[in-house]
Design a protein around this nucleic acid. Structure first.
Lengths: 163, 163
DNA sequence: CGCGTATAGATATGACGTATAACAGTTACG
DNA sequence: CGTAACTGTTATACGTCATATCTATACGCG
């Protein structure tokens, strides 16, 4: 009964071009879209090495921190301990890492990369660097530094944002 | 290779502080971390309105494009049509939108927001703006523009392959 | 007109990522 | 000692997301 409809065209007429102007005022919207593009390309870049994103990240952290425990690795990767087990299992079964018993705590494992793991780390990291160069090619060093700084400052708001 | 280990401590000794220096050379690493922070905070910002991220996005797109079809909405939101059905169902059951039959294609629906939907759109969008302001508070307008530009240029690297 | 193909939306289902609970072995501490 | 806390593990459940399939309708073509 209310005759105050603000429709400017016939109801049921689909718009030809869809607008997302409201969402375009949000940086989060741009970040989500951009990250999806990067992630999708990164998955392809890692596919030849049979590595997923988390698998590669785990390999990198173990490579850079020999002897670390699984709980430390889970903490850095921001995943729960139960979910890390299968990831470490996979890396171990592919002989990319070893699970040594910790010398100071017999509950814990000391994770290290094998020679094969180090080699795969080198090759995959090279591929990821090439993948990154694709997206940074259009950026000046100053622009890239600004983006990095902004991302890092947002990351640093992590603890304070969640009360 | 045998004697070139760069281990400066006993094997099995866990490092006290874990390093992620290799990953820190990648913009994608910073983007993932930053986006996770923003998304987590955004979910909290939308919780009072009982809206999830995709539910809010759908409401916004419908609000801005009255009369659009579900397939168009799914395309903009980059989700598959089957998954969109339940989202539209939820919005419809909450009387935030209506599914009119299209005047030009009886297979399709013409989606529009109700008065309640428009009101929730206003309130939730205000909340999202406040949420965004938190993270942009430390950024200068130039910095923000640079980030936006970089994100957009990355996004544009995707569409060039599929159009 | 009749027939085949394409599209819009809906349903069911499986794969995947992720969070929680509970358990065994070990350590820390009163 | 004995209780609590911690490490890794298993089982499980939930949410997200993609695929296959179905119906109704639209379109193209002889």
């Amino acid at each position: 009964m209310a005759g105050s409809d603000k429709i400017a065209k016939l109801p049921g007429t689909p718009p030809g071009r869809i607008s997302d102007e409201t969402l375009r005022q949000f940086i989060g919207y741009y970040m989500k879209r951009a990250y999806n593009v990067i992630q999708s390309d990164l998955v392809n870049a890692l596919k030849p090495y049979e590595l997923r994103l988390v698998t590669y990240s785990a390999l990198v952290i173990i490579h850079d921190n020999p002897g670390l425990r699984q709980s430390q690795l889970a903490d850095v990767l921001a995943i729960e301990r139960p979910n890390l087990v299968v990831i470490v299992d996979e890396l171990e079964q592919r002989d990319l890492i070893v699970r040594d018993r910790s010398a100071v705590d017999r509950r814990a494992y000391a994770l290290r990369v094998t020679k094969a793991g180090a080699a795969l780390y080198d090759a995959a990291t090279k591929a990821v660097q090439d993948h990154e160069d694709k997206f940074c090619a259009g950026m000046s060093p100053e622009q890239r530094a600004t983006v990095l700084d902004a991302m890092n400052s947002i990351w640093n708001m992590k603890t304070e944002a969640s009360s």
